[in-house]
Design a protein around this nucleic acid. Structure first.
Length: 932
DNA sequence: TGATTCACG
DNA sequence: GACGTACGTGAATCAG
């Protein structure tokens, strides 16, 4: 059995200590039910280890594996430098007792568990990685710690398990600006605040990389420090030479660290089910116990517990999933049996299978139902006998009910007010049924329930929810229909297989519903679900099915013109460059600009390629023609490919209209998202782009109306943060940006200049986004210190803003979420993270209540709109975050505008009484360009 | 498939 | 003291 480590072997070294800290900080505090012992970090650690085990089963599976931990707080580095890691916080009280348990967990998985007094995990990892590499094997270090990046190369790479990123030589170069072999030199110069490595004061990674690349090595640099031109750098390097050399010693990992094991000791061993499961049972990890047992093919041990009200549902015992138990409904009698059961119950989980993802064109293939966990059926309606290949004669498969018969039988139940229909993403099924003349109602939707509770934590697709809350991975659709070119439609799937897949979906949906329903109350989001999520389903269903008329000829003409212009620009660009290249390739553009032409400002991205975003090209365009032409080319190319070409393909053959699909649970803030096609990003900011809106037209004899909220987010900010000056300006109907400018810069309104107003406008927007001096300076293209000055002044004049920001962040840190004025919850799981994403999470938390409240308001307006315009010859077609588009009979415009405006302006009431007025602007025209 | 770029609010 | 930063989306394209 035992082999000697060598060529063909693959060693996985898991940075256990890093795993534990990430688990501890990423997860909510969790305690063992029987005795209250904190076990959140152990749980996260176990899940991560299990994930590594499960995900590394392929041909690239490790042959050897170890989890490596830090041991003790005193290492040989402290002897060299007593301030080493001195700024580390004490280990949190809740974490300390969990440390030994993570060792137990590792051993329970039958994985080697390594730690050595006086050494850090990094040292052991380094020694083993070197040994394995030298023996001709491959090594993957599972960690994202930059201190380990020096080891990369020559068969050693890293893997960031959180981000699922491989870290190879290129990634290291992207981070440090030098190869792995010189990483320690850069680290020695740049230092590290986290580990308290001093480095050279005033020198960061960028500068360090620059110096090392120029001089080759740190030693060479220090020896020739006198030659450095910049006086400050020269002085720093000479003065702090000792400190820099010490830093290098501190960060350097030693391949010769004595380790107490050999590589052969680390050979992968299959876990012993008894040992592993009894550990998991002892920890009382229900979900992972079940999952592991399932994977190992043994029965999960029971975990004793008293079912109690406050116990999270996801931890409760549940029935296994047994695909063979699902029923294939072959005739009307069997279907009647299910209908009787549904009527008895008063509810049913339902799912439809169709030939495609587009509800406007897909055909119904079958329906699945479930009324009790574990019990579900599939009613095939339009399956083919063959599999779509050459020998397929297109015959109907046996054992199916006729579609009309089935629908006639089901329609009374599906439309019965007394029977609740439960689905996952019900808008989809409701649209399919609507096309067949069935108006399904009332409904519940597990996707929307999850969204009300878990927005910001994870997605809300069925696979995610099932894995997370039922501990069960559903049969992947790919196993039935394949993927890519050879993909088949569901009607070609053999019915026996379809039953297992489709009925399972109904089963899962029902189980999720049973779990989520009481949770909504506990999480205090029932009102959000019932007033802001669920009612959107019929509203959006109608809008999407209505679609908007798009004139193909207009688009086609524009495409032609754009093609000509692109060709012309391309010639000019090649001429200017003196060679032909792909203008559509940012990296090739970068090479031309920054290498051939030798322009400054070239930045490389993660992939080591030049990056050439518009703002960079704009700067270059002031002095050169080529970047200006590239910008022009890109604009035209965007308009053509994304809009004038692509939109034509979305025109429905039957209706002649474009039917977008809104995702209700897509954006974490409560906004809708529009896709296939996205009609929320049709150009408007440039004259050329705006003309695309001319292709969105009203039907004959009709007119398009556009009504949009004026400055809704700033108004909400003024209300929430209670800014008197802003509220007064809104109440008086002033130009808000001019009023802000006036207040900030002491300029009377009648002396306001466009430039000053522009700056105030940028600040107003910046505040909504969680402003920073850097961001504002880049936006306004002014020095950072000036930008910071503006912000300081803004906070001084409107102190409520700063208070709002601080309070919001504080709330998020304490509760893990923020809320809108209407109670919508946006979770902020990253808010307590450290490192670069901390800033993102902070700004997102500041923005979410504002953006989310605006989203809630327009949702409320949309939900009331159908009743409000009933009897008027008008249909609501589109929503673009703060704008609604209607199609109305010519002549009815004024009446509709009055009614719609009233609903929109009063949409917050009565739930929230805003202290600022909401104002709605209206436009009308034969097309969207005119109406806007 | 991920990175880059750019369209919108 | 340095680092990297506006918030939220979807889609097309390049390149590996």
């Amino acid at each position: 059995m035992s082999t000697t480590f060598g060529k063909g072997c693959h060693l996985h070294l898991i940075d256990g200590s890093a795993f534990i800290f990430r688990a501890f900080h990423a997860l909510p505090p969790l305690t063992r039910r029987s005795d209250g012992m904190p076990i959140g970090a152990v749980s996260g650690f176990v899940n991560m280890i299990w994930k590594m085990v499960e995900e590394n089963k392929g041909p690239d599976a490790p042959t050897h594996v170890a989890v490596v931990f830090d041991k003790g707080s005193h290492t040989f580095r402290n002897d060299m430098y007593d301030a080493y890691k001195a700024n580390r916080d004490e280990m949190p009280e809740d974490l300390r007792p969990q440390i030994p348990l993570t060792r137990d967990a590792t051993r329970a998985f039958s994985i080697a568990c390594l730690e050595q007094e006086g050494y850090e995990a990094d040292d052991i990892i380094a020694a083993l990685a070197c040994q394995a590499r030298d023996a001709g094997g491959r090594v993957t270090i599972i960690s994202s710690d930059k201190d380990l990046m020096q080891l990369v190369g020559g068969g050693v790479e890293m893997f960031d398990a959180m981000k699922n990123n491989r870290i190879g030589v290129e990634e290291v170069e992207a981070k440090f600006g030098v190869g792995p072999d010189r990483v320690v030199d850069v680290q020695a110069l740049a230092g590290d605040s986290v580990d308290n490595i001093p480095g050279a004061p005033g020198i960061g990674i960028k500068t360090a990389a620059l110096l090392i690349n120029e001089y080759g090595t740190l030693e060479e640099l220090l020896n020739r420090a006198e030659e450095i031109k910049q006086p400050k750098r020269r002085q720093t390097l000479i003065e702090h030479r000792d400190q820099i050399e010490l830093s290098k010693q501190l960060v350097t990992l030693d391949c010769d660290t004595p380790v107490e094991v050999t590589l052969d000791d680390l050979e992968v061993v299959a876990p012993d089910p008894d040992k592993l499961l009894s550990f998991l049972q002892e920890m009382e990890f229900r979900t992972v116990t079940r999952r592991v047992a399932e994977a190992l093919g043994v029965e999960a041990p029971a975990i004793e517990e008293a079912r109690s009200e406050d116990m999270p549902e996801e931890e409760q015992e549940q029935l296994p999933f047994v695909p063979d138990d699902y029923e294939w409904v072959k005739d009307a009698a069997a279907l009647q049996g299910w209908i009787d059961r549904i009527n008895d119950r008063g509810y049913v989980a339902i799912d439809t299978e169709t030939t495609g993802l587009n509800e406007m064109t897909a055909a119904l293939v079958g329906i699945s139902l479930s009324v009790e966990p574990g019990q579900a059926c599939y009613i095939p309606l339009a399956h083919h006998a063959g599999n779509g290949d050459l020998f397929d004669d297109g015959k109907r498969a046996e054992g199916q009910i006729d579609l009309d018969t089935a629908l006639t039988m089901l329609k009374p139940v599906l439309e019965d007010d007394a029977v609740l229909k439960i689905g996952q993403n019900m808008k989809y099924d409701a649209k399919i049924f609507a096309r067949l003349g069935v108006e399904i109602a009332p409904i519940d939707d597990t996707m929307l329930m999850s969204y009300a509770m878990h927005a910001g934590i994870h997605g809300h697709g069925m696979d995610t929810l099932s894995e997370r809350y039922l501990g069960h991975q559903p049969i992947p659709i790919k196993e039935l229909i394949g993927s890519g070119k050879s993909q088949i439609t569901f009607d070609k799937v053999e019915i026996g297989e379809a039953v297992k897949y489709a009925a399972e979906d109904a089963d899962i949906t029902l189980r999720l519903w049973q779990q989520f329903k009481p949770q909504l109350h506990r999480e205090r989001v029932t009102t959000v679900y019932e007033t802001l999520e669920r009612p959107m389903v019929p509203v959006l269903k109608r809008m999407e099915m209505a679609g908007i008329k798009v004139d193909r000829d207009t688009l086609s003409r524009m495409s032609g013109a754009f093609a000509q212009k692109m060709a012309q620009l391309e010639d000019e660009i090649h001429e200017l460059a003196g060679e032909k290249f792909n203008v559509g390739s940012p990296s090739q553009v970068g090479e031309i600009l920054f290498e051939r032409m030798g322009l400054d400002g070239g930045k490389k991205g993660k992939t080591g390629k030049y990056s050439t975003p518009a703002d960079v090209l704009e700067d270059l365009a002031t002095t050169h023609d080529l970047p200006a032409r590239v910008l022009d080319w890109r604009q035209v190319q965007k308009l053509k490919s994304t809009y004038t070409d692509a939109l034509q393909t979305h025109i429905n053959a039957d209706t002649g209209r474009v039917h977008t699909c809104y995702s209700i649970a897509g954006a974490s803030t409560g906004r809708l998202a529009s896709n296939d096609p996205n009609l929320q990003n049709i150009p408007v900011r440039t004259e050329e782009g705006r003309r695309i809106r001319e292709a969105f037209v009203a039907d004959a004899g009709k007119v398009l109306l556009s009504l949009d909220y004026s400055q809704i987010e700033l108004r909400i900010l003024a209300h929430i943060a209670d800014i008197g000056a802003l509220k007064e300006a809104f109440a008086d109907g002033l130009d808000i940006h001019a009023a802000t400018a006036s207040e900030m810069f002491n300029v009377p309104l009648d002396e306001m200049t466009p430039e000053i107003r522009r700056q105030a406008k940028a600040i107003n927007f910046g505040v909504i986004y969680g402003i920073s001096g850097f961001g504002l300076s880049r936006n306004l293209r002014i020095p950072r210190s000036d930008a910071q000055g503006f912000i300081d002044r803004y906070f001084e004049r409107f102190p409520g803003i700063k208070a709002y920001m601080d309070d919001t962040v504080k709330f998020a840190k304490e509760h893990g979420h923020v809320s809108t004025l209407f109670g919508r919850r946006i979770n902020t799981p990253e808010i307590n993270a450290r490192g670069p994403h901390a800033g993102f999470a902070r700004r997102a938390a500041i923005n979410a209540p504002i953006q989310g409240t605006a989203a809630d308001i327009i949702r409320r307006a949309m939900i009331r709109m159908d009743a409000a315009i009933e009897g008027l010859p008008a249909r609501m077609l589109l929503q673009v975050h703060d704008e609604l588009i209607f199609e109305v009979d010519a002549g009815a415009e004024d009446r509709v505008i009055d009614r719609v405006r009233e609903v929109m302006e009063g949409a917050a009431m009565p739930a929230v009484k805003l202290s600022v007025p909401l104002v709605v602007d209206a436009g009308r025209g034969a097309n969207w360009a005119e109406a806007h």
